[in-house]
Design a binder for these strands. Structure first.
Lengths: 210, 210
DNA sequence: TAGATTGTTAATCGATTAACAATC
DNA sequence: TAGATTGTTAATCGATTAACAATC
C-alpha cells in the first residue's frame, strides 16, 4: 500500500481530505462515489479509481466510510502528527503565513523565524522572536527541523535554499517566483502566486472560449 | 490563433513567460527549444509543441526570438495592459497581497479594499482607505472592476463571491479553502495554500518513493 | 433476497514524446 | 551550401471513463 500513487491523484488528495473533514463534522457516516463526485466535480468512476489508489476501504452497496477515509488520507498526507517548520524572510507575506490559521489547525508548528533586516530582529511574531539568518544552521540542527517556508526576494531564494538544505531542511515551501534547484532528496513545492494570478488573467481574457 | 490551447500548456505559460523575461533582461536574442527545455525541465519536443500552441514565431536553424515570444505570451496572458482589482477581507493575508510587489509589476492595480471590522474601516493600505463591505456594489459598478481577490474566512467566501458576481466581478482569485460555485462565465482560480502545504507534507513523507 | 454500490478490467481519450521533412 | 533547428505528423504513454462482475 501507499505504493506509487499517480501524480494527478496525489494532487486531488487534499481536496478529498477537505470534503471528508466537512462530511465528518456534518455527522455523515458513509458517502457514495456518485455523491462525492458531485461535490468535487469529478466522475464517480474517477473517485473510485482514486480511492483504490489511496488503498480504499469502501463497502459495496453502501459507500465509503467517511471517518475512516478521512483518517487514512490524513495519515497519507502526513497530517497525523505535528510538524515543526521555520520561516525565512519576514516580509508581509512571511508575517501573514505565520498567522495563517489553517496551518496551525493541520498541525504545522512554527519553530523559528529569520530575517536579516536589523530592525526586525528581536521582534515577536506568533510568540517567537525573529532571529538573524546566521543563526539558521544552529537552530535547524539543534531542533532538527525538516520543513522551511521561503518568503524571500527571488534573488536570494536559491542561495538561502542551498544553505537550508546543507543544514538539514528537506521540505521547501517556496513563495519566491523562481524555481529552486536542490538535490533529488529535497521536496519542493513552489507556490508562484504571480503565475496563479496570470492564469486567472488568461482565463478572463479568453472566457468566451469556454 | 489563440484557439483552444490545451489546459496543461496554459498552466505552463506563466513559466515560459518568466524565463523569457529573464532571458530578455540578460540580452539574449534567440533561444532554442533544446536550451529552453533544459531551463524548464521539459523536453525539447514539448517546448516546440507548446510554442506552436501559443502561435509560435520560431525560426528554423536559429531558435525562438526571445523578445517577441515574451511579448506574445504577455498578450495571451492579458499582461499587456493594466487591470484594476479589488480585495475583500483585510486580514494578514489580504494586507500582504496588497503589498506584494510582483502584482504591481505585472500591471495589477489595486482599486479598492473592503472589510467589515469596525476598527479597520478607514485604515489606509497601499494608498487606499479600507471601506465597509456594503460599499462593494457601488464601487464595483462605478469603476467597472472585473477582478477580485478573496482573502476571507471560508464560511463567508461563497456568499461574498455571489455578491461580487452580481455586482459585475468576473475573475475570482480565491484564497479561502473552499470551492466557489458561480455561473459559467466567472473565471475562478483557487490558491488553496493549505492544500499546497499538504502536498509538500505528502512528498516529504514519501520522498523515498522518488 | 433484491438493490445498491464498490472494485477492477477494458476502452477511450488526450497529452507527451519521437521522428523527420521543411527551411532558415 | 551545410548545419542547425523548427514545425508537424505519427507513435507512445498514461490518465480518465465506461462497463460490469463481485459483494455488501
Amino acid at each position: 500500500m501507499s505504493n506509487l500513487i499517480p501524480e494527478p491523484a496525489v494532487k486531488r488528495m487534499p481536496m478529498y481530505y477537505r470534503y471528508m473533514q466537512k462530511l465528518e463534522t456534518e455527522g455523515r457516516i458513509y458517502i457514495s462515489s456518485r455523491e462525492l463526485a458531485e461535490l468535487t466535480g469529478l466522475t464517480a468512476s474517477q473517485v473510485r479509481q482514486d480511492m483504490n489508489f489511496f488503498g480504499s476501504t469502501g463497502r459495496q452497496g453502501c459507500g465509503y466510510p467517511v471517518a475512516e477515509i478521512r483518517y487514512d488520507l490524513g495519515r497519507l498526507l502526513g497530517l497525523d502528527r505535528e510538524q515543526s517548520f521555520i520561516i525565512v524572510g519576514m516580509g508581509n507575506l512571511g508575517m501573514a503565513l505565520v498567522h495563517y490559521e489553517p496551518l496551525a489547525e493541520k498541525g504545522f508548528v512554527l519553530s523559528a523565524a529569520f530575517d536579516n533586516a536589523e530592525e526586525k530582529i528581536g521582534m515577536c511574531v506568533g510568540g517567537i522572536a525573529i532571529q538573524p539568518m546566521n543563526e539558521i544552521e544552529n537552530v535547524v540542527k539543534m531542533q532538527s527541523v525538516k520543513l522551511a517556508v521561503l518568503t524571500l526576494p527571488s534573488n536570494t531564494a536559491q542561495e538561502v535554499g542551498e544553505r537550508l538544505y546543507q543544514a538539514g531542511i528537506r521540505g521547501f515551501w517556496n513563495f519566491a517566483p523562481v524555481d529552486l534547484y536542490l538535490p533529488q532528496d529535497a521536496s519542493i513545492v513552489n507556490v508562484h502566486l504571480d503565475a496563479s494570478l496570470e492564469m486567472l488573467s488568461y482565463r478572463m481574457a479568453h472566457a468566451d472560449l469556454f
